[in-house]
């Protein structure tokens, strides 16, 4: 063993690193498992001590509450529709804007990008009050529009895509595309979109999860229970006297599945099997 050997150069430290990595990973994943466990315990037993670590026998009862008390299924579809719409729109508009900021030199570029980023720092909690006024004036209450339209070219996504395209998309590829006769829009569709995948994967995951979990805006803009989203419907189960904690946990557990699916689908783009550009260990 010399100082020149890589840190993970021998089997023993590598094995130890794997064990540590796995142990911490299990710790991180535990709460996720725990929600599924709690979802199978009847409401009055969810908070028992010592905490439950294995599945209980309340699954069907909880499912019954979930399906009878609240429109779980329809809100599931609403959430899915809203989240997918927002994700697709965000991916398109943010990649487009990020491409412009990352790969073009134009007047006021720096200032405009600075402005986009500055809007991120505006604490948005209070904006919902005047925004609500606008939505009433637009007649957008009880539609998906307030949840989908204003954020479809979001500052966060633009910032993210600018960062990734500036450093992750070689100019030569764009030049090659231009030589092949692609216009600016053609470059965007044929060259940028396929090569921006790792960045878009992150944006897709984040947008979907953010939209899927949105609670306050859905509560305010979608008062109609049949049109509202999953978190709102789940919150309705939360009460003092009539304990539905088991059903709430089950509903939460099931609502995590689409996010898992989206993560797995997109995150494949992030580690694309150690291809040419990957770091060696």
């Amino acid at each position: 063993m010399t100082a020149r050997r890589p840190m993970f150069g021998t089997t023993v430290p590598r094995g130890a690193a794997m064990i540590a990595l796995t142990a911490v990973a299990l710790l991180f994943a535990f709460p996720f498992y725990y929600i599924f466990v709690l979802g199978t315990w009847p409401g009055e037993r969810v908070l028992e001590l010592p905490p439950h670590l294995v599945f209980g026998n309340g699954l069907s009862a909880n499912l019954e509450v979930l399906l009878e008390r609240v429109p779980y299924f329809s809100s599931f579809l609403n959430s899915l529709g809203i989240a997918l719409t927002q994700t697709v729109l965000s991916l398109f508009f943010c990649t487009m804007a990020g491409f412009a900021f990352a790969k073009y030199r134009f007047r006021f570029r720096k200032q405009l990008l600075g402005f986009v980023i500055a809007t991120l720092a505006v604490p948005g909690f209070l904006n919902i009050v005047p925004f609500y006024k606008m939505m009433v004036a637009f007649g957008w209450i009880n539609t998906w529009l307030p949840l989908v339209v204003p954020g479809m070219a979001g500052a966060f996504g633009i910032f993210l895509m600018t960062q990734f395209l500036a450093h992750g998309l070689p100019d030569e590829l764009l030049d090659a595309g231009a030589i092949d006769g692609l216009g600016e829009f053609g470059l965007l569709i044929r060259v940028v979109f396929p090569l921006a995948r790792p960045g878009m994967a992150i944006l897709g995951i984040i947008t979907f999860i953010g939209s899927w979990n949105s609670f306050t805006s859905a509560l305010v803009f979608l008062p109609d229970l049949s049109k509202t989203t999953l978190p709102v419907v789940l919150a309705a189960l939360n009460s003092r006297v009539d304990n539905n904690l088991g059903a709430l946990m089950l509903g939460t557990a099931l609502s995590l599945l689409p996010m898992m699916a989206i993560f797995l689908v997109f995150s494949r783009q992030i580690i694309s099997g150690l291809t040419a550009g990957a770091v060696k260990g």
Binding site: T22, A25, F28, P31, F32, I209, N213, T252, S267, I271
Partner: peptide, 16 residues
């Protein structure tokens, strides 16, 4: 597996 496991807390709901 690792990527997913470390990411799971991010999607776990606040109530839980």
């Amino acid at each position: 597996f690792f990527k997913t496991a470390y990411f799971l807390p991010y999607i776990t709901s606040t109530v839980a």
